[in-house]
Design a protein around this nucleic acid. Structure first.
Lengths: 210, 210
DNA sequence: CGTAACATTGATTGTCTTCAATACGGGTGG
DNA sequence: CCACCCGTATTGAAGACAATCAATGTTACG
């Protein structure tokens, strides 16, 4: 998935060195400041990247989903910049550093898709700042629901805990809960199951445009 | 600066294709959504990257200084993701795409420092979220002053306008002004000239740790 | 059935926004 | 030179908004 057009000669090497891993909800994929020795490509599930501050507080700085890559910094020999935690059961594809080095050395043109990923991460970071850190709490929460809802059919939207919402939006969990309740009362959000809810994306979109 | 160890054979090509440019304060380095054909390395000055939202509002998502690179996305053929505006007189080194392509093709090992830059941008984005979008306005402003003050001798700190502060911190310019005034009254900040101020970084640091 | 984890709601306090007025500083033109 | 004007900064007062502390509901699970 990460390297879309891998030459035949490398397939064997990849087969032998890439393995799938399952993480149950709430388990850590890796810990901030650890020295990374692999790259993780998310197959299914949802992962939060948490930045832990020296004073003990934490802040979610990104959400990763199917197709996203965690731990790019390992390629450069840097320790992981975040603690990565699964928010749902998550399946990842683990790519050890040796494989990355192999690819980069013998097939430098493959570094292009890698740069694409880097840029994508940056775009996501910007989007996080712009959509989730800006404006009234209600607007930011609407943005978050839209973010969680894209690429899902029939308006279904992954549900995440109030505390995680709060940490992402820079508000308290009580405020997150109040606004969610309000959305429900207004019919913008309906609970479907423990893991999904149905959202009126048009109305939510309208909320964000003012 | 960007490519630290360029082989002799390429120096001539670089000399011919890289030129310096000066931007006066408030002038645009480039415009969001333009198709980029060059990379800009900041020599001196200060540049804000502004994300323009569809509804007309804007948000600063990053600040660039000496050694930072703007427009990495151009390498990948993407349009610029931000509008880049000089906050002071700024000198940049403009590197056209042809040069980048040349470097990447003939000397693939040079892509490593490029990746380093990418990662650095990402780290800055994270820092922006964590330090400038989190907590009370006072704490965020303290973080901003610390950011503006690093790598300057004797506690001098670049002054930026209240509106820019506000856009960076997600607050109103009045709130930014009030807090700055309060900092001055408390002796944490003193105006030196129109462009610089002296900050008590230890005290500001303390503010952020709670 | 009891308990633990999470969500909701209420009441109060504190912070930030909003709208509005005023102050300041650096020009320009009379 | 001075009066004026512009852009920016400061300050005030009112109300909106979110944080905080605390209590009550809800759900899942042993």
């Amino acid at each position: 998935m990460l390297f879309s057009d891998v030459p035949e000669s490398l397939l064997e090497h990849l087969q032998n060195n890439i393995d799938d891993k399952k993480f149950i909800s709430h388990s850590k994929l890796y810990q901030q400041d650890e020295t990374g020795n692999s790259l993780l490509s998310i197959r299914t599930g949802l992962v939060k990247l948490v930045r832990e501050l020296p004073n003990g507080t934490t802040r979610i700085v990104r959400l990763l989903r199917r197709g996203d890559v965690a731990g790019l910094e390992a390629i450069l020999g840097h320790p992981y910049q975040h603690t990565a935690v699964a928010l749902q059961e998550t399946h990842v594809c683990r790519i050890p550093m040796s494989t990355i080095d192999h690819l980069n050395k013998d097939h430098s043109h493959l570094s292009h898709p890698l740069m694409e990923r880097w840029q994508r991460s940056l775009n996501e970071a910007d989007r996080f700042i712009v959509e989730l850190c800006t404006g009234a709490a209600e607007v930011r929460l609407a943005h978050l629901l839209l973010f969680l809802g894209v690429k899902t059919k029939n308006g279904n939207c992954m549900v995440i805990g109030r505390e995680d919402m709060a940490s992402m939006l820079g508000i308290t969990l009580e405020t997150a809960s109040r606004i969610m309740s309000d959305f429900k009362r207004r019919g913008l959000v309906k609970e479907i199951s423990g893991t999904h809810c149905q959202c009126d994306f048009e109305q939510l979109q309208l909320l964000t445009h003012k």
